[in-house]
Structure formats: C-alpha cells, structure tokens
Design a protein around this nucleic acid. Sequence first.
DNA 1: CTGAAAGCGCTTACAG
DNA 2: CTGAAAGCGCTTACAG
Lengths: 345, 345
Amino acid sequence: MQLSPITLDDVAAHAGVSPKTVSRVLNNEPNVRATTREAVLAASLELGYRPNRAARTLAGSRSFLIGHLHGRADRDYILSANEGIHAACFQHGYVLLPEPLLDPNDGFVVRLQQFLQTAPVDGVILTPPLTDHEPLLAFLKARNIPIVSISPEKVRKNIASVYIDEKEAAKAMTRHLMSLGHEKIGFIAGPDDHGASQLRTEGFLEVITQGGLDVSQCPQDKGNFTLKSGALAAERIFETDPDITAIFAANDAMAAGAMTSAFKRGLSVPDDISIAGFDASPLGEVLWPALTTIQQPVASMAKAATLWLISGALARTEDPLRERFDFDLIVRASTSVPRCKRTDD
Amino acid sequence: MQLSPITLDDVAAHAGVSPKTVSRVLNNEPNVRATTREAVLAASLELGYRPNRAARTLAGSRSFLIGHLHGRADRDYILSANEGIHAACFQHGYVLLPEPLLDPNDGFVVRLQQFLQTAPVDGVILTPPLTDHEPLLAFLKARNIPIVSISPEKVRKNIASVYIDEKEAAKAMTRHLMSLGHEKIGFIAGPDDHGASQLRTEGFLEVITQGGLDVSQCPQDKGNFTLKSGALAAERIFETDPDITAIFAANDAMAAGAMTSAFKRGLSVPDDISIAGFDASPLGEVLWPALTTIQQPVASMAKAATLWLISGALARTEDPLRERFDFDLIVRASTSVPRCKRTDD
DNA sequence: CTGAAAGCGCTTACAG
DNA sequence: CTGAAAGCGCTTACAG
C-alpha cells in the first residue's frame, strides 16, 4: 500500500537532467560531473524521493533482499543476528528475510530452492549450525550466491566470515577467576565435536598451567551444553573435589546447572563458590545471582557481515574476507574473591 | 540472482491463451471457463512457472510482503510468531519481514514510515507489547494497513485478533495441582497492569474457591515476571507457610525463581514441593526438573492470523475477526502427588 | 468469457 | 560526461 508517489522521472525533471543521469547518481556510477551529481542529490532530497524497489528489481539484476539462513540454534542468538543484519539493511534500503532451514533431512534444499524463487536474495548470512552444512554451502556456491558466515565452526578458505577468538576468551575468563584469588578451579567442558568447545578447553588449560596452578587441584568434567549435564558434572566435581572455590563452565546453560547443584548442596554463590559461564545467554542474565560470562558481539558481527554483502566488498576481493571481533568479559554477581582470601571476614 | 526464467507469456503460449487469461487464473479472478482454467494450470505446472514478485508488485497494488512488527518482548515468543507467519507466507508466495520497533520514544513512527517506504507491506502482524501501543495502531489505521494482533492485552472492537483464554488456562493448571492431591497451594501473581496476569490470578482463585480448598491455607504473593522476583516471593511464602506442598507462579521465570528458593531451603522438587509455571518458555524446558507449564500455540496463532491477511478475509468482513485458540497443559517433572498423599512410601 | 494495448518505475545497452 | 529508446514481467482499464 501507499507507494511513494515521487518517481525518478520527477527528480530528473526537477534537476533538469535525464532520468538516466538520476539513475547514475543513485547507483554511484562513474561519469557524472560533480555539479550534476550534487544537483540530482539536492532534487532527490528536496522531493523526498525513495526509489521503488520493485521497479529496480524488475529492471535490474539486484533484489535488495538479504537472506538470513538459520537452523535450530539458540533462539536468542538467531534474533541477535537478525538485529545486526536488519540494522545494516535498514540503512541501505535493503530488506532482511529470515529463512528457517530447520530439518536438514526434510527437503532442505528443495525448500531453499523455493525460497530463492520467490525471494531471489542478493546474498545470504549463515549462522551456526548452517555455517558448516556442506550440501548447503555447495548449493549456494553453485548458484553464485554471495555468503558470509558468522562464527563458523571450521574456517573455510573460500567463504567470508566474522568470528571471535574463542580460546582467547576462555583464557580471559580463567584469568579473571585467578585474579580474584581462586586456585582450585573446576572446569566443565562442552562436547568434543564442537569446534569452539575445544578451543575453550584449550584456553582454560593454557592459563592454569602457565599461571602456575596445580592442575591436579583443578578437576575437569564434561557436559553437552545442557543445563542438566552441567548440574550432573558439577555434582561429580563437588563429590571428588569438595574444596574447589570456582567452576568455569563452557557455556551458560551448564553454568546454570552448576549453580543449581551448588544450591542443592547448601553452597551459596558466590560466597562459597564462584561460577562462570560463556555465551551471555539471556538465561545467565536472569539467574540470581546473575552469571559472569563471555559475550560475543553477535549483532555487530552480523551487521558487519551484511555490510560486506551490500557494499559489494565481497565481490571485489580474491581471497574471502575475514574479520575477528572482540569479545566482552561480563563480570556479574556469580564470581567473587574466594572466602579464604577475603580480608573483610 | 537467478530469476525464474519462465514467464507468464510462456505459460500463455503453451496453453494457447492470452497472457491476460493466465493472469486471471493465477489471481483466482472470475469469468474464466473451467476448461480454460485447467489448461492454464496444467501449462503452468508443466513449465514450473513461478510468478515474478517484482513484476506483480510494480504492475499491481500488492507487494506480497507481510510485516511482523514486534517490540522488546520475550525473544522466544517473537521467534515462534515468526515461524507461524513464515509458514503461511511460504505456502502462498508471500515473504515475511520482521521489523523491530524497540524504542517507542526514539523516532518510533518515523522508523515505521521509513520501513513502509522500502517495504510497502500488504498487512502487519502485531505481537505484544505493540498490540496495545495506541499511536502505532492509529498510524496503521490511518494508512489503511490491515492488522491482526496476537494476544493483545486489551480487546479492541476494530482490530482482528487471535488469543487464548488466559483465565481458563490458569484454572486448568490449578485443577491439575488439586487433582494430584495438593490442598495447600501458594500462588505467585504477576504485575497488576498486565491484562493476562490479572486473568491468571482470577482463574487460580476461582478454582481453589469452588474446589472447596481453604483459601487461608493458600498464600498469595506477587512478583514482576522476573526470576528474582519469583525467588523472593517464594521465600516469603516458605517463611509464612512452610507447610505448603505446591507453588503456582504466573509465568515460567518466576516459577524458576521459586525452584531456586526451594533448593536453597533444602527442599526437593517435586518430592517436597511441586512447582508450576505459565508460558512454556525455553527456560522451563531446560530446568531440572523440567517445569510443568501452560503452552500457548503461538506459531499456530500467528499462522492463522497471517492467513487472514493473505486471503483477504479481513477485508471481506465488517466486524473484525477474532479466534480463540486452545492452550496446552504441559505436565513435566516439577509437579507430582504431594508426599503426604503418596501410597508408595 | 477472452484479449490487445498501455503502463507500472526503474535499468540496460547503445549512441553521441 | 549525458541522453533517447527499449524492455524487465506482470496488471490495469478497456473493448468486444
């Protein structure tokens, strides 16, 4: 409804040039005299001109549509990515189309094909786990659709991506706990087949080793990223090493589980035991005490990725673009100086 | 990229009719002989024809775009709604455009205006809290944009909506607890200014009263839908009424808080105390024990709402459409027969 | 019940 | 550096 009534021809007439020249200015094409360009821009602004997307698409080869293909991931993660993509699109007259591809076995590619037919996107953003779905990548590559992956598990030489340094983040969290004075720190790792999970474990081990802690005093256990698995792992740790003063879990859900187990044993957090997570999930924010965690700037990463797509930067380079983003260590109430190191009691 | 190469003219030639006739069939217009219609459909199917959205939009008055305007709501709720809208759109060659309108004070309407300029949607789905944002509703009404609201807090005579019976749902949960044998049930209400919250309280009270329970044995407290507020309310309840055997919280976050408080008191769930929530949030699913709760079929509701928009059903009726959906009582591990009523121990 | 013509608002390919 | 013509793939308004 309510299409913008001002057309390119109106702008042309108002600026005293041909429609083609207006088109050139709008699309940042070369070969326009500076004064002409300014006149067109002024006329466009004055009339409040908004290009008609349907007309541009029909006449040209761009759709001004960006797809966000996502699987069955953390829903908060998906929405944060959408936010960043949307922001970039909004600025440039593009439109975000989120496309759920939930079941890889069930007509996955046929669905995508149908999607592309009604929505011929100019590029797609991929979030995990779709970032590592080989048939999907092959399909998109075959159709020459520009791709940017957010935090792919595996680095690929032919696909642009944005990411954070997972290992460095785990190291930062471990250092945070050590700086508080913790010397007996338990670690709950994630599943082995998860790329980031491994890096987090490596980061933890590296810091406690180099920091001179007694590794035998730092029990390690493992979960599968669920709250329950974290609770069970923490129970085992409390059983074998009742004197630990901190637990670092490789994601927030497991940290929440560890917190539950601590409560069940009558331990208070953080007075008796500090607990730290990873991911900055909304769960960690509502916990009480709120969870100390690592935050990935998902929205910023998604926005940057989308800007690559929109600007055509992707097409202009040979080797795929890659950009590392800084994580944030978010210190909340679940971690503190261990009781034995406290001066005030 | 990769536009469908088969055009309406191809179909017309293949079926031996004029392009206009193909257009009639595609748009379900009247005045086409049945045999002609079939021939066109057959040709269309055989050639694998897909109408070009940009061309239809440019020539006609529809954009085949459906907007989902959402505020700063539960992110899982937003994504569930997106799912349902997407499903309806996908079936009918429409496209879903989620549009976050997060800050009502910050250029809210200007943003919407800009959105509508680059994406002239054929209709919008509204989810809370936008369902009750008066300036927004007025703006949309003024532009004649079809609207369907999902679970608005207030019923409006001039806006179509889908909803569940909140009071009936609270009654079902209360009955569930009573049927297990609980007689001393605590209730944690939500904030007063929240329409649904009031109805849930009413439902609870109605059932315990009519069910013949001693209301003085059923302590009521109040929170603001956060985990922490639920934990604090539960603590107060445990303090004043240590012999209650169940707590029903008006949403899942507060129920999770109540569970935390139970753990801190050394109570086990559900052996010592049953805990029930409302909303079927993902949080309740990952809790351990998992939370008994009420589920609103958000995706189905959103899909039905979108179908109204797409089918034009909205435009064909005088009084706005309304449809009530059935909720689900999801019984999980957090509720059971109270210890005193158990036969097996 | 069916069709020929014009046009939606842009970009493409070409000419100058 | 600039422009006139044609056309993208549909629907509208009209004629028969």
